Amino acid sequence: MEYKRFKSTIVVRMDKGEEILEKIKEIAVKEDIRLAAINALGAVGEFTAGVLNTKEK
């Protein structure tokens, strides 16, 4: 994985086989990100999306 920050935008290039969520968490911790919107372009072998109810946590 490689990433570069451009002001408030971070561009990431992940390698084949890397876990997307794991890498996003890694960047969030390194860059102290608490809220983000994510856009992606590319191909994946398997993908699962989820929703968090903030009232129930």
Rank of each mutant, 00 (worst) to 15 (best):
A28G: 01
E2T: 13
E22I: 02
M14V: 07
G45N: 13
R13G: 14
T54N: 03
A36C: 09
T9R: 12
A40Y: 03
R13C: 13
D15M: 06
F47Y: 08
K55Y: 04
K55V: 12
F47W: 10
V51E: 09
K57R: 07
I24H: 02
E2K: 12
A36W: 01
I24T: 07
R13E: 15
V44T: 13
I27S: 08
G50C: 04
K7H: 13
E2Q: 15
D15G: 04
D32M: 06
E2C: 05
E26V: 01
V12E: 09
D32C: 03
G17P: 10
R13I: 14
E18S: 10
E18T: 03
G45D: 15
E31N: 06
V12L: 10
E26G: 09
E19S: 06
L41Y: 02
I24E: 02
V29I: 08
K23I: 08
L52M: 14
I24V: 11
A43C: 10
A37W: 00
K55G: 14
V11N: 05
T54F: 01
K4Q: 14
D32A: 05
V44M: 08
M14S: 07
V44I: 06
I33V: 11
E19H: 03
K7A: 14
I27K: 03
T54P: 02
A43R: 04
A43W: 02
I20T: 06
Y3F: 11
F47R: 13
T48Y: 06
G17Y: 01
R13F: 11
E26L: 09
E19A: 06
R34C: 05
T9A: 14
A49H: 05
G17N: 11
I20R: 00
E18R: 03
T9H: 08
Y3P: 15
V11R: 08
E22N: 07
E19N: 09
S8Y: 04
E26A: 10
L21H: 01
E22T: 05
K55P: 03
E31R: 03
I20K: 00
E22G: 04
K7C: 13
N53D: 15
E2W: 04
G42T: 10
V44D: 09
E26Y: 00
N39W: 00
A40H: 04
